[in-house]
């Protein structure tokens, strides 16, 4: 699958930010919200340096971040807020375990970055990620590599979500 969009690099001191937890992605004060459409506006409003993310994000954006993205709580909101913003995908160097499941089951694409050359990309650039080929490209030149998707993730993405996927079993 191909994921193409305008990229947000979540950086601190020139490095991709590690350990962005679910309270930074979607703070616990908004947890009573159950309507996905209302969730987008609060995305990253507790992440230092990116509190205005939701205002500036556009449909079709891609988020690139560091290790252990989405650690912490089990809240689905931390995935759904990106669905609400129509974010194409989140690509991180690794994900928190629950976050990974939540994203996979809801059919929201998350990609694991094996390697990326930060000197060749900046926020606002258009980037293309190919989950089959494992490539990250800007202007057709390689700027990084992706881990392959697991079979279950591919199957669920194809079906739409875990509920639809279960019907195919």
């Amino acid at each position: 699958m191909i994921f193409k969009g305008r990229v947000w690099l979540l950086l601190r001191e020139g490095k991709l930010i590690d350990d962005i937890d679910t309270d930074m992605i979607f703070h616990n004060k908004y947890l009573a919200i159950t309507d996905i459409a209302e969730m987008g506006q609060y995305t990253f409003d507790n992440l230092e340096g990116y509190k205005d993310f939701a205002k500036k994000a556009q449909p079709g954006d891609i988020v690139i971040t560091g290790q252990n993205f989405g650690s912490g709580s089990s809240r689905q909101h931390a995935v759904d807020c990106f669905v609400a913003l129509k974010t194409v995908c989140v690509a991180a160097q690794s994900f928190g375990a629950i976050y990974k499941r939540n994203a996979i089951n809801s059919g929201f694409p998350i990609l694991t970055i094996k390697q990326i050359d930060l000197s060749k990309v900046k926020s606002g650039d258009i980037v293309e990620m190919d989950s089959e080929a494992g490539t990250i490209k800007k202007d057709s030149s390689d700027i990084g590599k992706l881990e392959p998707l697991s079979t279950v993730q591919k199957d669920i993405l194809k079906a739409g979500n875990v509920f639809e996927y279960a019907k195919t079993l």
Binding site: R75, Q76, I98, N102, V162
Partner: peptide, 9 residues
């Protein structure tokens, strides 16, 4: 721990 879709399933 899991999200709400996982648990509904």
């Amino acid at each position: 721990g899991m999200g709400d879709q996982d648990i509904a399933f």
